[in-house]
Design a protein around this nucleic acid. Structure first.
Lengths: 260, 260
DNA sequence: CGACATTTTGAACCTGTTCAAAAACAGTGG
DNA sequence: CCACTGTTTTTGAACAGGTTCAAAATGTCG
């Protein structure tokens, strides 16, 4: 299971770091069928035979160092990326210098769907810590899913879920107050970590207050203040980037408080 | 399916109003290949032959009366809907009574993608005026696109574009001020209408100030006040629901003003 | 025409922002 | 390992944009 914890920098170390642009991992190809994220990632629901087809599809792995971009707005779209290790943020930005974090992605999640529409990526994907992704060439995925209805359906489901996830963010941005946004954010994060075998009581925030603020439509000062308030009220315990969930039900209640 | 609808429409005229649930239009099937929206809708980029396959796919039409639901949150997902006529809003709502308009859809646009993920619709789609849609059974679309790579790609593109559109809304909700939001909203609407052959100088808002407010994360009073302000400043001319764009470049400037 | 919904406008209020400064932390090089 | 520098976080105080509450005006539909 992905060592989300720790500076893992050393483990992502043995890569051929001399590759000019996309450092591909030298290590033996680990197939989807062997991956411990297969229950969360693309292969969900595939039969063993179908999974073999998928193995052939995942061309390579790629390491992305903390702070580096997996892709950037405007880059030609060729592949989707399944995160094996690490955390990413995606963000959109406008010509006039506005930007907005559109999501944080962790192991087992897919990034790059934004590029299918125009053939160019519409956002940046940046590694918040040293990371590793599986490269899935879209053209091949399209071919294979042409023959594998199960895969096609699953892929559609993934895209649809991304749309629905974004609906949720719109709800949050459009109708929640700062405390509610933070509560929702933390609960969501913990829940996703839990699905990956991590504690449901603790999260290490891989992103800065400013990045959280951008995602939640708040200023970093507000994020900081609001976390402090949630701590004062006894819902959480904040120690820098380590957040302990003291009262999850209470947090859920906070999240729903503003609605009537 | 839903036809939450009503005393199934009289004005949607010549439909077999005895249909139990979904009033299907009796009139002769008008194929995609004949539709004047084909350059905007699903068929985009299909060859004449491929278009014939698509014709076979579109099972029926359905009329939806103003105020009625095309589908509702929780309804079983079976089909996508291509809007032939009229305007819809989609909205999500939470158990605790919050809701948020996630988009306004007009002729040539597709609704229902939210349902693919779970097999149930994740939002409501409501007609803002009497409307008519083409019903596209998802199972058949999946089958056909299995054999028509072009269609598959195009469908992927549509979903991806929806994701990117929502990124834009997140940017708006997360980082724009009221005046900027309204400017962006109006410009976007006008632009879409223009692509359908309508004036780029005038729009009739099919939705209330409250609905606009929900979409833009503002209260209806703020929407009203802000429209008045934009009018005072000479960018637009507001007469109830009719908005005339007096100075489009100015509006664009307003939209970008807040960014630095 | 009358009942109801929508829109506009005003005034007080509140939440989150802005500006500012100090504290805590992380990474670098000696 | 420690000192040093730059970044991130916290907290305070004044401010501003949008909300809330309220009432009047305008529209819409039966």
């Amino acid at each position: 299971m992905s060592s989300l914890s720790s500076p893992s920098s050393t483990s992502a170390a043995n890569l051929c770091s001399d590759a000019p642009v996309a450092p591909l991992l030298a290590q033996a190809r680990v197939a989807c069928s062997q991956c411990n994220l297969r229950e969360l990632c693309l292969p969900v629901g595939l039969s063993p035979e179908d999974m073999t087809r998928l193995d052939a599809l995942v061309a390579s792995r790629r390491a992305v160092k903390k702070g580096d971009a997996l892709f950037r707005h405007g880059d030609e779209f060729t592949s989707l990326y399944a995160i094996r290790l690490g955390t990413f943020k995606t963000r959109v930005n406008t010509l006039d210098g506005r930007d907005q974090v559109t999501g944080f992605q962790i192991a087992g999640e897919l990034v790059g769907l934004d590029g299918i529409g125009t053939g160019q990526h519409a956002c940046d994907a940046l590694a918040l810590e040293d990371a590793e992704v599986c490269v899935i060439p879209y053209a091949r995925l399209a071919e294979v899913s042409q023959e594998l209805p199960v895969l096609q359906r699953h892929f559609h489901r993934l895209m649809s879920r991304e749309i629905v996830r974004e609906h949720g963010v719109m709800l949050l941005l459009g109708s929640m107050r700062a405390e509610e946004r933070l509560a929702a954010f933390l609960l969501n994060l913990v829940q996703r970590m839990q699905a990956r075998g991590f504690s449901s009581r603790e999260v290490v925030l891989r992103m800065t207050r400013e990045e959280i603020g951008s995602y939640l439509g708040l200023k970093l000062e507000t994020v900081s203040r609001t976390l402090s308030r949630l701590a004062d009220e006894g819902y959480i315990d904040v120690q820098q980037r380590l957040v302990r969930i003291v009262d999850a039900d209470g947090l859920r209640h906070v999240m729903e408080a503003g609605a009537r």
